[in-house]
Simulated scan of single mutants.
Amino acid sequence: MPSRLIRPFTARATYRQWVHLILGAVLAVPYLAVAGLVLGPLLGLGFGLRLPPVAVGLVQGAFVVLAVVATGLLPATRSLSGAAAKSLLGLPESGDADTWPDRWRTVCWLVVHLALGSGIGLLTLIVPPFILLLFADPLLALSPELAGISLYRAFDIGQWWAPLVGLGLIVAGFHLVAVVGALLARLAPTLLGPSEHERLRRQVEELSERNRLASELHDSVGHVLNVAALQASAANRVLDSDPTFAREALAAIADSTRAALADLDNALGALRSSTLDESSLADLDDLIRSTELAGLEVRLDLQGNPGSVPPQVSREGYRVVREGLTNTLRHAGRVRVAVRIAISPRTLDMDMTNPLGSSTSRRGLGLDGIKRRAQALGGHAEGAAKGDNWQLQVHLPW
């Protein structure tokens, strides 16, 4: 019981919630000031209307409500309210103001925040001086001005128990702030958090990002490991008969594995980056050189200027060639591959052809990844066996 009594005094959340409630009171001041200092005189005396006080009060109240609603419908209000709730109320995540239901939830939050904040703010201004008077009055003579106030006469201030009342008000005040702050903290996820539709959309985006990373790692690291394995095997066979070739193969293995480690570092340390591999069509010569060391014979026919291809399309074109060469090594072994790349002012067309190996099925992450990325850029990709050859065709527009 004592711990529950003093918990609002020791919990940091109480003070953060108190600040948040005071913020609501501060935000309410402009609306109340315009209603009281501008609309009141205009409606009461101006324009010759001379409305009765009740009518003036109703108009002022309607103005405050409409102004708060208009403010809550602004998209920026949801962002600012969410940031304040995250910092002071511990809101896990805030939602976007993409739909009208989201904006109306912001309106509800703003109304509750301003109403509760105004109440707590008013008590924060009024109660502390009264508590000080309760503590000090038994020691001091009550001035005639204060003695004439009915509130002070009603409490019979000046008695020995007055400080106890002041202490009780302090305890009650902290508990009131804790209760009201906890209420706001409980309402925040409902009114400021993401909707079910938004949560689903974020889950889909996260899943898409994971799939993208899996595809990137499969293409880059998978290619390197396949090539490195074949290069190591080739170097081992010719180590005595052709040491020069063996040294070149081992050097290529070292370079490619370092590149693979860099890709892994990017994947694990910068998951939010747009790409894991910045290689483009300009790097095809290095790719083909490392692949040929693994025993694959590559004949490249490049038509057009790779520098004229947009960076994103150029990167995807490089990945298509890399994945095609990896698939050839995996399924057909050391064969000849014909790679034709045609660059026109608005399109990139690629055609890769190689003899079929023992495995005629190319379904898997590689081919599926090529198709997904091509579709994401508005293009298409097809891979199929044609006679004794396997052919991969990719069309990427921009």
Score class of each variant (00 low, 15 high):
377 L>W: 05
121 G>C: 04
306 P>S: 01
228 A>G: 13
70 A>G: 06
53 P>I: 04
158 G>Q: 07
302 L>Y: 03
374 A>R: 00
383 G>P: 01
245 F>L: 13
217 L>K: 00
352 M>T: 02
214 A>Q: 09
367 L>R: 01
41 P>S: 13
207 L>H: 12
49 L>K: 02
367 L>T: 06
215 S>P: 02
72 G>A: 08
395 H>K: 11
317 G>L: 07
206 E>H: 05
129 P>T: 14
238 V>H: 09
46 G>P: 07
29 V>N: 05
222 G>A: 08
115 A>Q: 03
184 L>F: 04
129 P>A: 12
50 R>K: 13
301 D>P: 08
340 R>V: 15
244 T>M: 11
182 A>Y: 01
122 L>V: 15
304 G>M: 06
172 A>K: 11
213 L>H: 11
59 V>T: 09
271 L>R: 08
96 D>F: 10
395 H>C: 09
360 T>M: 07
360 T>V: 10
307 G>C: 03
103 R>C: 04
61 G>M: 13
39 L>P: 00
38 V>Q: 05
44 G>T: 05
329 L>Q: 09
34 V>L: 15
139 L>P: 05
20 H>M: 08
87 S>A: 15
78 R>K: 14
256 S>D: 15
384 A>L: 08
182 A>E: 09
376 A>S: 14
223 H>V: 04
115 A>S: 10
55 A>G: 06
397 P>Q: 12
174 F>G: 10
19 V>W: 03
184 L>G: 00
29 V>T: 14
309 V>T: 09
111 V>A: 04
115 A>R: 07
32 L>P: 02
84 A>I: 00
271 L>M: 10
3 S>Q: 14
38 V>S: 10
304 G>R: 02
208 S>N: 15
249 A>E: 02
204 V>M: 08
2 P>S: 12
269 G>D: 15
323 E>Q: 12
241 S>Y: 06
150 S>R: 14
222 G>R: 00
181 G>T: 07
118 S>Y: 03
137 D>M: 10
189 P>I: 06
335 V>W: 01
63 F>T: 05
141 A>W: 11
27 L>G: 08
50 R>L: 13
304 G>H: 05
110 L>D: 01
215 S>N: 10
185 A>T: 06
163 P>Q: 12
231 Q>Y: 00
373 R>H: 12
311 P>H: 04
48 G>Q: 06
11 A>T: 08
33 A>I: 08
155 F>H: 09
164 L>C: 11
235 A>I: 05
151 L>T: 08
63 F>R: 06
368 D>K: 01
45 L>F: 09
10 T>Q: 11
17 Q>P: 07
243 P>T: 12
26 V>H: 02
182 A>R: 13
261 L>P: 01
268 L>I: 14
131 I>P: 04
245 F>T: 11
166 G>F: 03
247 R>W: 04
245 F>V: 08
338 A>I: 07
251 A>H: 05
126 I>T: 15
298 V>Q: 03
350 M>N: 01
229 A>D: 14
129 P>V: 10
275 T>C: 06
191 L>V: 08
143 S>I: 04
